[in-house]
């Protein structure tokens, strides 16, 4: 792992990975959107509005995965003082917040025709909303210090505190009676949806994950460049 702590090695490596990652993401998006919007059948109950799910579900998955990624990167940064892990956690936060917002908005758009209301105080919706606030708190904290290194360290502690709290918040919000349908893919045994709907869903999930990796790489490269400029400016100011 420490082999990759060298920013220059990271820059060289990612310069080679990035084009392929972008290409794969674009291909997954094109194929996934074509299958989701064109080929897959409308649902017998929800009609055409089921197609919102092909954006909503991957976004919700990514909202949670990105927070887990941030927590893992923060733990690595705190334990081994790995410099790139700090950058990665900081770079991932706005992307994760974006996914969470997409999940909330598409959920509201789907809820209006299906449940007859934009928003209900249901357990899952509420916990995703709290997750969104956790993302916003992290972003605000990281940017609240004049010294970016201090901000990243405070953010790392907060990401871990939030990660421990997510299951507790989820559980306590579940205490209310829930309106949201239970997960239909992660059930044990065969998935509860037909393959004509599962294939576009998996493709869209891959596309979202690929998008996350591409943007993460870009943002970490950006962050490295920013730190280099800052270091040069400091040298210049002292000299």
């Amino acid at each position: 792992m420490h082999r990759f702590a060298n920013p220059n090695r990271f820059l060289r490596l990612t310069a080679r990975i990035l084009p392929w990652c972008a290409l794969a993401t674009a291909a997954a998006f094109i194929a996934g959107l074509y299958l989701a919007l064109g080929v897959s059948p409308p649902d017998y109950q929800q009609g055409e509005s089921v197609r919102i799910m092909y954006v909503h579900v991957p976004a919700a998955w990514m909202a949670l995965s990105v927070y887990s990624f941030m927590a893992a990167a923060s733990a690595v940064a705190l334990i081994w003082k790995h410099p790139l892990a700090d950058f990665a956690a900081k770079a991932a936060a706005p992307i994760g917040a974006g996914f969470t917002l997409i999940a909330l908005v598409t959920g509201a758009l789907w809820g209006q025709p299906s449940w007859g209301t934009w928003w209900v105080w249901d357990a899952r919706l509420t916990s995703v909303l709290v997750l969104f606030f956790l993302y916003l708190g992290y972003i605000a904290l990281v940017n609240a210090f004049d010294d970016p290194i201090r901000g990243a360290k405070a953010g790392a502690v907060l990401a871990l505190v939030g990660f421990v709290n997510i299951p507790i918040i989820k559980f306590s919000v579940d205490w209310w009676n829930t309106l949201h349908q239970p997960a239909s893919i992660t059930r044990i045994g065969a998935p509860a949806i037909h393959s004509s709907m599962l294939t576009p869903l998996v493709l869209m999930a891959l596309a979202f994950a690929g998008y996350f990796v591409c943007v993460l790489i870009l943002r970490v490269r950006n962050e490295i460049a920013g730190r280099k400029i800052r270091a040069l400016r400091l040298v210049q100011a002292q000299g």
């Binding site: 709290v130 606030f133 904290l141 405070a154 709290n165 918040i169 306590s172 205490w175």
Partner: peptide
């Protein structure tokens, strides 16, 4: 924890509430 995290931060007060209030949710519910 929130107070310790925001030591030395700019605009500490508003930031503190953004960090801490989501974590208060379980206590509030029960």
């Amino acid at each position: 924890v929130g107070a310790a995290l925001t030591v030395g931060a700019r605009r500490g007060g508003a930031l503190l509430s953004l960090l801490v209030l989501p974590l208060y949710v379980p206590v509030l519910i029960f």
